[in-house]
């Protein structure tokens, strides 16, 4: 739902980031307003997963330039846990297994960390049990999964449902869902997408990171961005996704090559025109 006067939740400006000294993001610009659903599409290696990790604060990624404002405040200055507490959520492409840590206890600690930040009182085990049972409906998840260790021995689909369950409990303002559709069969995809649709509201924004049109058949985006070589190459409405589906990504390669060539030329020209005094 696009409302030009809706408050800006996330503003990404010329964001650059590297992993192991290898530049991956090369100037990403993106603005998310309340109520909007955005989809970022692109090939493997285009930088879309990196974008999600950088926003969540993964320590392996180093921000080398640009800024990210979350409701007007500097997001990049915060520890990952602080970002989560103020309402940023990352749904992982490959949720890790954490043996020995009870899923129920994990969900409760996470929920209470968010609630404390919101000025709400912490939930005791009984109150939390009631809440979690209600939220299980969102993803039609079996309560038996609460008794197991976090993601341990879960199938791909169960892991993704557990992600959306966490989203339902944490009630984020900005939810980034990284390849949530990968590894899901069509029924699981419907359930997970149904959960996302239920949770999307006029107050929050969703950023879907995906490869394929099939997720966008069940969650309708307001904007579609095409990402390549670490930047957003083109932005359009949902029809852009259909166009990608039809034409494939080859035209993107051509365009990025052209762009990079012209940048190199500009850079060479800038260096060539410098006088020795300026360089010194």
């Amino acid at each position: 739902m696009i409302r030009p006067d809706a408050p800006v939740l996330l503003e990404i400006c010329d964001l650059r980031a590297s992993v192991e000294e290898q530049p991956i993001l090369k100037g990403v610009n993106l603005t998310l307003r309340a109520g909007e659903i955005h989809a970022v599409m692109g090939r493997n290696g285009s930088g879309k997963s990196t974008l999600s990790k950088v926003l969540a604060g993964h320590p392996a990624y180093r921000v080398t330039g640009g800024s990210v404002l979350y409701r007007g405040d500097d997001l990049l200055a915060l520890q990952p846990e602080q970002r989560a507490r103020i309402g940023l959520f990352l749904g992982f492409q490959y949720p890790v297994e954490i043996p020995g840590v009870s899923n129920l206890e994990f969900l409760r600690v996470a929920t209470n960390a968010r609630r404390l930040e919101q000025g709400l009182e912490e939930l005791d085990t009984f109150a939390f049990e009631d809440l979690v049972r209600e939220r299980l409906q969102v993803v039609q998840m079996d309560p038996a999964f609460l008794e197991r260790s976090v993601n341990e021995g879960f199938s791909g689909g169960e892991k993704k449902r557990n992600e959306i369950l966490q989203m339902a409990l944490l009630q984020p303002l900005v939810a980034i869902l990284d390849e949530t559709d990968s590894g899901l069969d069509i029924d699981a995809l419907r359930i997970v997408a149904g959960g996302v649709n239920q949770l999307a509201s006029a107050d929050n924004a969703t950023l879907l990171i995906t490869h394929y049109q099939r997720l966008l058949d069940v969650i309708t985006p307001d904007y579609v961005h095409v990402m390549a070589a670490g930047r957003i190459l083109r932005t359009g409405g949902k029809e852009l996704a259909l166009e990608l589906e039809e034409r494939g990504y080859d035209w993107v390669d051509v365009e990025i090559e052209r762009l990079e060539a012209s940048e190199l030329e500009a850079l060479a020209a800038a260096q060539g025109s410098r006088t020795p005094a300026e360089v010194g």
Binding site: A56, G57, H58, P59, Q79, P80, E81, R83, A84, R85, L90, F92, P95, V96, I98, G100, V101, E105, F106, V109, A110, A113, R114, E117, Q166, L170
Partner: peptide
């Protein structure tokens, strides 16, 4: 990172594990 990205502080995450 997974635990941290759910609002659980570093120390508590280590201690939980």
């Amino acid at each position: 990172f997974y635990l941290q990205s759910r609002g659980i502080g570093f120390e508590e995450a280590v201690s939980m594990m």
